[in-house]
């Protein structure tokens, strides 16, 4: 069965010793993220995010379905994460690893269950028709920080996505194409950002955005999900114990970083919007509607 190559003792000691002197192998500061880059596709809701060597591609799509029986007034939102061998030979097709499970559960908690999308706004006819929004996460290259990268990419894709406009006339629903009516953005309640903290030397050294080799030598990890104002989630799955004060300090750092990342995403989204507008697509559509 394929498995990830274990880090060698020499490399492990080297990284740990360097971290003891507050030095990272790639020369970053302890609380510095790797270079973040967002690319939007031609279609709405297509995002490729690069965080250092980690690369995640997210595709958001929408279709009309029947709402769940117990939630008649809500649309459906799902996040699908599947790690394929494209990212690393250690991932197998059709066999869920623990890492994959943790990734999808954390994203589920951070984005879906924190109500980042107002699912009620996805309802078209109560109990009969609603939008089903699906975010497919494709990890193309994995070099650590998968949770952070996927979360930023999904939220960016959701903010970038536009669903077709609909009109309801009694029982009849008309779905307009992108050419007929300007598509509508999803109604986002907040923009969650996952920040993973890695702990070394009994919690003395705290790292942000660890690479894969740094992840392999850490003693404990903690994922904090924040939005622009508040903390949404704390997940600490095992590892060595962390002092309460350290946790508080991490929260402050996470809030600052979250704001920074959201600002970056907003700037990239605005750039993309102007690019699209200059291209004449939106202007053209708007002109058509005015007539």
């Amino acid at each position: 069965m394929p498995r990830e190559i274990d880090i060698s003792n020499i490399e492990r000691n080297f990284i740990l010793e360097a971290l003891g002197q507050d030095v990272r192998v790639d020369g970053r500061r302890l609380d510095q993220l790797r270079d973040l880059n967002l690319e939007f596709g031609v279609e709405y809701g297509t995002v490729t995010l690069r965080l250092g060597k980690t690369r995640v591609h997210v595709q958001v799509s929408a279709e009309v379905t029947k709402p769940l029986e117990e939630r008649k007034f809500e649309g459906v939102f799902s996040i699908v994460t599947e790690l394929s061998p494209i990212a690393s030979p250690a991932y197998e097709v059709g066999r869920q690893t623990e890492q994959e499970l943790i990734l999808s559960r954390t994203l589920e908690k951070a984005i879906r269950r924190s109500n980042a999308i107002d699912t009620e706004s996805l309802c078209i006819i109560a109990g009969a028709k609603c939008w089903s929004i699906r975010a497919d996460v494709h990890v193309l290259d994995s070099d650590g920080g998968l949770i952070d990268a996927s979360c930023i990419a999904i939220v960016a894709a959701l903010r970038h996505f536009r669903r077709p406009d609909v009109s309801v006339d009694g029982e009849n629903v008309t779905i307009y194409t992108m050419a007929e009516r300007v598509p509508v953005p999803l109604s986002m309640m907040h923009n969650p950002v996952c920040i993973t903290f890695s702990f070394y030397h009994g919690g003395e050294t705290i790292l942000l955005d660890a690479t894969r080799s740094e992840e392999q030598v850490r003693e404990a990890e903690m994922v904090l999900t924040v939005n622009d104002w508040e903390l949404c989630q704390v997940a600490k799955l095992g590892g060595s114990a962390i002092d309460a004060l350290v946790l508080l300090k991490c929260t402050t750092t996470a809030l600052a970083k979250g704001k920074e990342i959201n600002g970056f995403v907003a700037r990239k989204l605005a750039e993309d919007a102007t690019r699209r507008d200059v291209g004449g697509l939106i202007a053209e559509l708007r002109a058509e509607n005015d007539r």
């Binding site: 394929p2 031609v42 060597k53 690369r55 394929s84 061998p85 494209i86 990212a87 690393s88 030979p89 193309l140 290259d141 994995s142 070099d143």
Partner: peptide
């Protein structure tokens, strides 16, 4: 175009058609 796979490539059909990223691992168990 990828870092981790042994071999990789991005192919885009003419006129910005279907774009596919291929990741090849070879030889593996």
């Amino acid at each position: 175009t990828l870092v981790n796979a042994d071999g990789s490539a991005t192919y885009t059909a003419a006129n910005n058609g279907c774009q596919i990223i291929a990741g090849v691992n070879y030889p593996v168990e």
